[in-house]
Amino acid sequence: MPSETPQAEVGPTGCPHRSGPHSAKGSLEKGSPEDKEAKEPLWIRPDAPSRCTWQLGRPASESPHHHTAPAKSPKILPDILKKIGDTPMVRINKIGKKFGLKCELLAKCEFFNAGGSVKDRISLRMIEDAERDGTLKPGDTIIEPTSGNTGIGLALAAAVRGYRCIIVMPEKMSSEKVDVLRALGAEIVRTPTNARFDSPESHVGVAWRLKNEIPNSHILDQYRNASNPLAHYDTTADEILQQCDGKLDMLVASVGTGGTITGIARKLKEKCPGCRIIGVDPEGSILAEPEELNQTEQTTYEVEGIGYDFIPTVLDRTVVDKWFKSNDEEAFTFARMLIAQEGLLCGGSAGSTVAVAVKAAQELQEGQRCVVILPDSVRNYMTKFLSDRWMLQKGFLKEEDLTEKKPWWWHLRVQELGLSAPLTVLPTITCGHTIEILREKGFDQAPVVDEAGVILGMVTLGNMLSSLLAGKVQPSDQVGKVIYKQFKQIRLTDTLGRLSHILEMDHFALVV
């Protein structure tokens, strides 16, 4: 994948999101292997301009796509893939009243899908469409860049269908997702969380590099694949309309690839034109409109599966009536509230959605109805927002919020430890010299600072030695090549209790 991002070429006709291997024109390309080798690009942008032909009021008969309808489940399912879809609609009884809503608040519980998330729908649909058009064949390999849930859905379907599955996901995604993927037989590649989507090191860039190296491999490409919004247009939206008897006044959905909100909203605009569509985008993402909503100094966020630093091709923002931004604290607070007060075992993005819903639905009156999409299960986040310690460490809970008995030293300040200034190293000294210094002084790690004293990161003896043994660096290389740029900081005025929580999850903390 090139470091400079080429513009994806656009073909003359058809839909841009065809499933299957992508040609340089962004659509299915038939021909000899030699032709494909000559024409197939190194990668295709996940934010390529959409060429979708959908228009409100256009006859369904003019759609270029294969459409399906929700099917009634048999008493005995032939395999677990038949437990994807037909998820329950559940009334939220307490939270709406707590925040003064007059309307009825309903939750579409997508964590009841077989793999635990709304992404099971698009995973199965992308595979079925690729099999139907002859792209996927027995023994082929599926590769997908994902925040985890699409990966789980694909790995689940691949396990049943017999495909090899490789999932490329950023490091910030939970260990629970990784464990589930491994249990399903998927191979996992992790990428830096802070890598831009168009960087060769991003999950998108690495996935395309693997595709170019592995024979008979395919990126189904949830960011561009029409099967993504079509899955929701054909099934999720129809289920909502049936469950609500066609009567709903507002739908609120958090947005990642945009397939969920695009597919549902398009069908609702056709069948229930008075329904307002509300999009939820986390602070630090750029999906919301108008652009002024996205202006923030924050560039990272903890909530998973929603928000991006690019506009995915499948996201149709014209069908969203209003956007709201959400933050991590309210997302996790509301997710825990949904679990504790409503018994809905949902993930953090569901918290984002409901946090926005109780604001947006203030305009609705008694007798009206708001539906929220709860995308995934708490299963993926047992060591994250479900953990009091994690919430404390991230600053989303305060010590006084917890009532468990603490040891005698818990409320003492870090400054009472009488710490001395640490050994520091410059980023320009060599790895070999740094190892000598650390061994001589008896230290395992040291902060790396520039000549102005600005902290650049941390270097550890173990990481340097393993990097040297693996051949990633040489003793003569500058130590700046092996620094940890993500590390926890703590102030002298913070409590030892807070430091204790940090050290339970990290090997060190830097006192500043």
Rank of each mutant, 00 (worst) to 15 (best):
P2T: 12
S3M: 11
S3G: 10
S3L: 12
S3W: 02
E4G: 11
P6M: 11
Q7M: 04
E9S: 06
V10Q: 07
G11V: 08
P12L: 01
T13G: 10
T13K: 08
G14Y: 11
C15F: 12
C15A: 10
P16S: 03
R18W: 14
R18A: 14
R18Q: 13
R18G: 13
S19T: 03
H22S: 06
K25W: 02
G26M: 07
G26E: 10
E29K: 15
E29F: 13
E34F: 11
E34I: 03
E40V: 09
P41E: 09
P41F: 04
L42D: 09
L42Q: 11
W43I: 07
W43M: 12
P46S: 06
D47G: 06
D47S: 07
A48W: 08
S50R: 02
R51K: 12
R51V: 07
C52P: 02
C52A: 03
W54M: 07
A60Q: 11
A60C: 09
H65T: 01
H66N: 06
H66M: 10
H66R: 11
H67D: 02
T68C: 11
A69P: 10
A71N: 12
K72G: 10
P74R: 08
K75A: 15
I80A: 06
I80T: 10
I80L: 13
D86Y: 11
D86V: 13
T87V: 06
T87L: 05
R91C: 01
R91T: 10
K94L: 14
K98D: 10
K98N: 11
K102H: 07
C103F: 05
C103Y: 00
C103I: 06
L105V: 14
A107N: 03
A107R: 03
A107C: 14
C109S: 06
E110Y: 01
F111K: 04
F112W: 01
N113R: 04
V118R: 04
V118N: 06
S123D: 03
S123K: 06
S123V: 04
I127S: 06
E128H: 03
D129I: 02
E131A: 12
E131L: 04
T135G: 03
L136S: 02
L136G: 04
K137S: 03
I142A: 02
E144Y: 02
G148R: 00
G148F: 04
T150E: 02
G151N: 03
I152L: 03
G153T: 01
L154A: 03
V160S: 13
Y163E: 01
C165I: 04
E171Q: 09
M173L: 05
S175P: 05
K177P: 00
K177M: 01
V178G: 09
V178W: 05
V178Q: 04
V180A: 10
L181N: 00
R182P: 05
R182N: 02
A183P: 07
G185C: 01
E187N: 07
I188S: 05
R190N: 08
P192M: 04
R196M: 10
F197A: 08
D198M: 06
S199D: 15
S199C: 09
S199W: 05
E201Q: 06
G205Q: 10
V206A: 09
V206Y: 05
A207M: 01
A207Q: 00
R209L: 08
K211G: 10
E213Y: 03
S217M: 01
H218F: 15
H218Q: 08
I219Y: 05
Q222E: 05
N225P: 00
A226I: 15
Y233V: 00
T235W: 11
T236F: 13
A237S: 08
I240R: 00
L241Y: 12
Q242A: 05
Q243G: 02
C244H: 05
K247C: 11
K247H: 12
L248M: 15
A253L: 12
V255M: 11
G256F: 00
T257G: 02
G258Q: 01
I264S: 02
A265W: 06
A265P: 07
E270I: 02
C272A: 15
P273V: 10
P273M: 12
G274C: 02
C275R: 05
C275I: 14
R276S: 03
